[in-house]
Nucleic acid binder design. Structure first.
Ligand SMILES: [Zn+2]
Length: 265
DNA sequence: CGTCTTTGACCTGCGC
DNA sequence: GCGCAGGTCAAAGACG
Protein backbone atom coordinates (compact mmCIF):
# COMPACT_ATOMS: atom_id res chain seq x y z
CA UNK A 1 0.00 0.00 0.00
CA UNK A 2 2.26 2.69 1.23
CA UNK A 3 5.22 0.93 -0.22
CA UNK A 4 4.77 2.91 -3.40
CA UNK A 5 5.96 5.95 -1.59
CA UNK A 6 9.14 4.22 -0.62
CA UNK A 7 10.05 3.42 -4.13
CA UNK A 8 9.89 7.01 -5.22
CA UNK A 9 13.50 7.88 -4.94
CA UNK A 10 14.09 11.49 -4.39
CA UNK A 11 17.45 12.55 -5.82
CA UNK A 12 17.96 14.88 -2.92
CA UNK A 13 18.22 12.03 -0.48
CA UNK A 14 21.57 10.49 -1.04
CA UNK A 15 23.47 12.90 1.08
CA UNK A 16 25.36 10.43 3.17
CA UNK A 17 28.35 8.88 1.63
CA UNK A 18 29.63 5.85 3.40
CA UNK A 19 33.27 4.91 3.36
CA UNK A 20 32.60 1.92 1.23
CA UNK A 21 29.70 1.92 -1.12
CA UNK A 22 29.04 -0.46 -3.90
CA UNK A 23 28.87 1.59 -7.07
CA UNK A 24 26.08 -0.44 -8.58
CA UNK A 25 22.74 0.91 -9.60
CA UNK A 26 21.26 0.39 -6.14
CA UNK A 27 19.33 3.49 -5.16
CA UNK A 28 21.20 4.47 -2.05
CA UNK A 29 18.79 7.24 -1.29
CA UNK A 30 15.90 4.84 -1.28
CA UNK A 31 17.72 2.48 1.02
CA UNK A 32 18.54 5.25 3.42
CA UNK A 33 15.00 6.50 3.26
CA UNK A 34 13.80 3.04 4.15
CA UNK A 35 16.27 2.79 6.96
CA UNK A 36 15.16 6.12 8.26
CA UNK A 37 11.62 4.92 7.97
CA UNK A 38 12.39 1.80 9.91
CA UNK A 39 14.18 3.76 12.58
CA UNK A 40 11.14 5.93 13.00
CA UNK A 41 8.96 2.84 13.28
CA UNK A 42 11.34 1.44 15.80
CA UNK A 43 11.06 4.59 17.84
CA UNK A 44 7.29 4.31 17.75
CA UNK A 45 7.47 0.69 18.81
CA UNK A 46 9.57 1.73 21.74
CA UNK A 47 6.93 4.23 22.66
CA UNK A 48 4.36 1.47 22.35
CA UNK A 49 6.39 -0.72 24.65
CA UNK A 50 6.68 1.98 27.25
CA UNK A 51 2.98 2.67 26.92
CA UNK A 52 2.26 -1.01 27.37
CA UNK A 53 4.53 -0.92 30.36
CA UNK A 54 2.49 1.88 31.84
CA UNK A 55 -0.72 0.01 31.21
CA UNK A 56 0.80 -3.10 32.63
CA UNK A 57 1.78 -1.30 35.79
CA UNK A 58 -1.73 -0.02 36.24
CA UNK A 59 -3.14 -3.48 35.62
CA UNK A 60 -0.71 -4.97 38.06
CA UNK A 61 -1.70 -2.55 40.75
CA UNK A 62 -5.30 -3.35 40.09
CA UNK A 63 -4.61 -7.07 40.06
CA UNK A 64 -2.79 -6.96 43.36
CA UNK A 65 -5.61 -4.93 44.79
CA UNK A 66 -8.18 -7.43 43.57
CA UNK A 67 -6.08 -10.29 44.82
CA UNK A 68 -5.89 -8.73 48.23
CA UNK A 69 -9.65 -8.20 48.29
CA UNK A 70 -10.59 -11.63 47.00
CA UNK A 71 -7.86 -14.22 47.43
CA UNK A 72 -7.80 -16.53 44.48
CA UNK A 73 -8.93 -20.05 44.82
CA UNK A 74 -9.57 -22.25 41.89
CA UNK A 75 -8.76 -25.80 42.73
CA UNK A 76 -8.25 -27.45 39.40
CA UNK A 77 -5.39 -29.72 38.63
CA UNK A 78 -2.92 -30.40 41.36
CA UNK A 79 -3.63 -29.71 45.02
CA UNK A 80 -0.21 -28.37 45.76
CA UNK A 81 1.71 -25.68 43.92
CA UNK A 82 -1.60 -24.21 43.01
CA UNK A 83 -0.48 -20.94 44.46
CA UNK A 84 1.68 -20.33 41.48
CA UNK A 85 -1.38 -19.44 39.50
CA UNK A 86 -2.13 -16.55 41.77
CA UNK A 87 1.29 -15.01 41.76
CA UNK A 88 1.94 -15.27 38.09
CA UNK A 89 3.44 -11.85 37.71
CA UNK A 90 5.10 -11.67 41.07
CA UNK A 91 8.41 -10.01 40.53
CA UNK A 92 9.07 -9.99 44.22
CA UNK A 93 10.09 -13.36 45.47
CA UNK A 94 9.67 -12.99 49.16
CA UNK A 95 5.98 -13.59 49.52
CA UNK A 96 6.22 -17.30 48.99
CA UNK A 97 8.70 -19.52 50.66
CA UNK A 98 9.53 -21.79 47.78
CA UNK A 99 13.00 -22.42 46.46
CA UNK A 100 14.92 -19.28 47.13
CA UNK A 101 18.06 -20.87 48.39
CA UNK A 102 20.83 -20.33 45.91
CA UNK A 103 20.85 -16.81 44.58
CA UNK A 104 17.67 -15.80 46.23
CA UNK A 105 18.14 -12.09 46.02
CA UNK A 106 19.00 -12.10 42.38
CA UNK A 107 16.33 -14.39 41.02
CA UNK A 108 13.32 -12.56 39.75
CA UNK A 109 10.77 -14.54 37.86
CA UNK A 110 8.14 -13.62 35.38
CA UNK A 111 5.68 -15.69 33.48
CA UNK A 112 4.76 -15.24 29.86
CA UNK A 113 2.17 -17.06 27.83
CA UNK A 114 2.83 -17.62 24.18
CA UNK A 115 0.33 -18.96 21.73
CA UNK A 116 1.79 -21.43 19.26
CA UNK A 117 0.77 -24.13 16.91
CA UNK A 118 -0.45 -27.07 19.05
CA UNK A 119 0.92 -29.52 16.53
CA UNK A 120 4.38 -28.07 16.82
CA UNK A 121 6.23 -30.15 19.40
CA UNK A 122 9.17 -27.79 19.67
CA UNK A 123 9.39 -25.67 22.78
CA UNK A 124 11.43 -22.98 21.14
CA UNK A 125 10.15 -19.47 21.70
CA UNK A 126 11.82 -16.81 19.60
CA UNK A 127 11.87 -13.91 22.00
CA UNK A 128 14.93 -12.24 20.64
CA UNK A 129 17.40 -13.65 23.08
CA UNK A 130 19.71 -16.52 22.44
CA UNK A 131 18.98 -19.61 24.49
CA UNK A 132 20.67 -22.89 24.98
CA UNK A 133 18.67 -25.85 26.08
CA UNK A 134 20.22 -27.72 28.96
CA UNK A 135 17.51 -30.04 30.08
CA UNK A 136 14.06 -31.44 29.65
CA UNK A 137 11.80 -33.07 32.16
CA UNK A 138 8.37 -34.57 32.32
CA UNK A 139 6.63 -33.01 35.25
CA UNK A 140 3.73 -34.15 37.27
CA UNK A 141 0.29 -33.07 36.22
CA UNK A 142 1.30 -32.23 32.69
CA UNK A 143 1.77 -34.73 29.88
CA UNK A 144 3.96 -32.27 28.01
CA UNK A 145 7.64 -32.07 28.89
CA UNK A 146 9.21 -28.97 30.36
CA UNK A 147 12.30 -27.60 28.68
CA UNK A 148 15.04 -25.72 30.49
CA UNK A 149 16.97 -22.99 28.73
CA UNK A 150 19.88 -20.79 29.69
CA UNK A 151 20.68 -17.46 28.08
CA UNK A 152 23.70 -17.94 25.88
CA UNK A 153 23.85 -14.46 24.41
CA UNK A 154 26.27 -13.39 27.12
CA UNK A 155 28.44 -16.03 28.75
CA UNK A 156 27.89 -14.53 32.17
CA UNK A 157 24.17 -13.97 31.83
CA UNK A 158 22.37 -15.72 34.70
CA UNK A 159 18.94 -15.76 33.10
CA UNK A 160 17.13 -19.04 32.72
CA UNK A 161 13.77 -19.88 31.31
CA UNK A 162 11.43 -22.81 31.49
CA UNK A 163 9.06 -23.57 28.67
CA UNK A 164 6.16 -25.93 29.03
CA UNK A 165 3.00 -26.43 27.06
CA UNK A 166 -0.09 -25.80 29.06
CA UNK A 167 -1.94 -28.95 30.02
CA UNK A 168 -5.29 -27.31 29.55
CA UNK A 169 -4.63 -25.30 26.44
CA UNK A 170 -2.37 -27.18 24.09
CA UNK A 171 -1.80 -24.12 21.97
CA UNK A 172 -0.41 -22.21 24.92
CA UNK A 173 3.21 -22.22 25.95
CA UNK A 174 4.00 -21.18 29.50
CA UNK A 175 7.39 -19.48 29.58
CA UNK A 176 8.89 -18.76 32.97
CA UNK A 177 11.81 -16.36 32.94
CA UNK A 178 14.13 -16.37 35.91
CA UNK A 179 16.68 -13.68 36.57
CA UNK A 180 17.66 -10.46 34.89
CA UNK A 181 19.84 -10.21 31.81
CA UNK A 182 23.18 -8.54 32.34
CA UNK A 183 23.17 -7.32 28.79
CA UNK A 184 20.92 -5.48 26.41
CA UNK A 185 18.17 -7.15 24.44
CA UNK A 186 19.91 -8.34 21.32
CA UNK A 187 17.08 -7.44 18.99
CA UNK A 188 15.36 -4.54 20.65
CA UNK A 189 17.46 -2.50 23.00
CA UNK A 190 20.65 -2.94 21.18
CA UNK A 191 19.24 -1.38 18.09
CA UNK A 192 18.93 1.84 19.95
CA UNK A 193 22.30 1.93 21.57
CA UNK A 194 24.78 0.22 19.36
CA UNK A 195 26.32 2.39 16.74
CA UNK A 196 27.60 0.61 13.71
CA UNK A 197 29.48 3.35 12.02
CA UNK A 198 31.10 2.16 8.90
CA UNK A 199 29.09 -0.69 7.58
CA UNK A 200 26.00 -2.66 8.25
CA UNK A 201 26.68 -6.09 9.54
CA UNK A 202 23.83 -8.46 9.18
CA UNK A 203 24.62 -10.92 11.90
CA UNK A 204 21.85 -9.72 14.13
CA UNK A 205 18.41 -10.97 13.25
CA UNK A 206 17.00 -7.55 13.70
CA UNK A 207 16.87 -4.45 11.66
CA UNK A 208 19.46 -1.92 12.56
CA UNK A 209 18.10 1.44 11.61
CA UNK A 210 20.16 3.67 13.76
CA UNK A 211 22.96 4.04 11.35
CA UNK A 212 21.07 7.02 10.11
CA UNK A 213 20.49 8.43 13.54
CA UNK A 214 23.99 9.39 14.36
CA UNK A 215 24.27 13.06 15.14
CA UNK A 216 25.17 15.21 12.26
CA UNK A 217 24.55 12.80 9.47
CA UNK A 218 20.85 12.32 9.27
CA UNK A 219 19.78 15.81 8.55
CA UNK A 220 18.10 16.43 5.25
CA UNK A 221 16.09 13.25 5.38
CA UNK A 222 13.21 14.79 7.22
CA UNK A 223 11.01 15.15 4.23
CA UNK A 224 10.40 11.43 4.01
CA UNK A 225 8.94 11.29 7.46
CA UNK A 226 5.43 12.02 6.43
CA UNK A 227 3.33 11.32 9.53
CA UNK A 228 0.42 10.01 7.52
CA UNK A 229 2.56 7.55 5.67
CA UNK A 230 4.16 6.51 8.89
CA UNK A 231 0.89 5.86 10.56
CA UNK A 232 -0.44 3.68 7.79
CA UNK A 233 2.74 1.70 7.60
CA UNK A 234 3.00 1.30 11.34
CA UNK A 235 -0.58 0.22 11.60
CA UNK A 236 -0.04 -2.37 8.95
CA UNK A 237 3.09 -3.51 10.69
CA UNK A 238 1.37 -3.71 14.01
CA UNK A 239 -1.49 -5.66 12.48
CA UNK A 240 0.95 -8.10 10.99
CA UNK A 241 3.22 -8.39 13.96
CA UNK A 242 0.53 -8.84 16.53
CA UNK A 243 -0.52 -11.97 14.73
CA UNK A 244 2.94 -13.37 15.08
CA UNK A 245 3.35 -15.27 18.34
CA UNK A 246 7.07 -14.83 18.17
CA UNK A 247 6.71 -11.11 18.09
CA UNK A 248 4.29 -11.30 20.97
CA UNK A 249 6.84 -13.29 22.89
CA UNK A 250 9.55 -10.79 22.06
CA UNK A 251 7.47 -7.87 23.25
CA UNK A 252 6.47 -9.75 26.35
CA UNK A 253 10.09 -10.53 27.08
CA UNK A 254 11.07 -6.92 26.57
CA UNK A 255 8.30 -5.73 28.84
CA UNK A 256 9.22 -8.28 31.46
CA UNK A 257 12.80 -7.17 31.35
CA UNK A 258 11.85 -3.53 31.69
CA UNK A 259 9.62 -4.29 34.60
CA UNK A 260 12.31 -6.30 36.29
CA UNK A 261 14.87 -3.61 35.74
CA UNK A 262 12.62 -0.80 36.86
CA UNK A 263 9.97 -2.27 39.09
CA UNK A 264 7.02 0.02 39.61
CA UNK A 265 6.76 1.53 43.08
C1' DC B 1 35.41 -27.45 14.32
C1' DG B 2 32.40 -24.95 17.25
C1' DT B 3 27.80 -24.70 18.85
C1' DC B 4 23.58 -26.60 20.09
C1' DT B 5 20.31 -30.47 21.26
C1' DT B 6 19.32 -34.77 23.35
C1' DT B 7 18.91 -37.60 27.25
C1' DG B 8 20.08 -40.46 31.12
C1' DA B 9 22.36 -39.78 35.44
C1' DC B 10 22.98 -37.13 39.28
C1' DC B 11 21.90 -33.60 42.85
C1' DT B 12 18.84 -31.24 46.05
C1' DG B 13 14.83 -29.93 48.62
C1' DC B 14 10.71 -31.47 50.75
C1' DG B 15 7.11 -34.31 52.81
C1' DC B 16 6.27 -38.40 55.32
C1' DG C 1 16.12 -42.08 56.40
C1' DC C 2 13.48 -42.84 52.26
C1' DG C 3 11.12 -41.79 48.20
C1' DC C 4 9.53 -38.46 45.02
C1' DA C 5 9.70 -34.52 42.03
C1' DG C 6 12.06 -30.66 40.12
C1' DG C 7 16.30 -28.94 38.45
C1' DT C 8 21.08 -29.46 36.52
C1' DC C 9 25.13 -31.77 34.55
C1' DA C 10 27.65 -33.68 31.00
C1' DA C 11 28.70 -37.07 27.41
C1' DA C 12 27.37 -38.12 22.86
C1' DG C 13 25.53 -36.99 18.64
C1' DA C 14 23.64 -33.70 15.09
C1' DC C 15 24.24 -29.79 12.42
C1' DG C 16 26.08 -25.71 10.06
ZN1 LIG D 1 20.81 -12.89 28.79
Amino acid sequence: MGSDSIRQSSPSLDLRVGPRRSPDQAPVGVLEAMMNQVSEENRRLTEMVSEMYTNHSALRRRLSYLASVAPCEKGSASPKRQRVDCEKHAASDDEHGCKRSREDAMTKTSKVYVRTDPSDPSLVVMDGYQWRKYGQKVTRGNPFPRAYFRCSFAPSCPVKKKVQRSAEDKSLLVVTYEGVHDHKHPSLDEVYTVKCPSHINSSAPSIDPDVTRQPGVDRGLGEIESPKFDRALVEQMVATLTKDPNFTAAVAAAISERILRHPPA
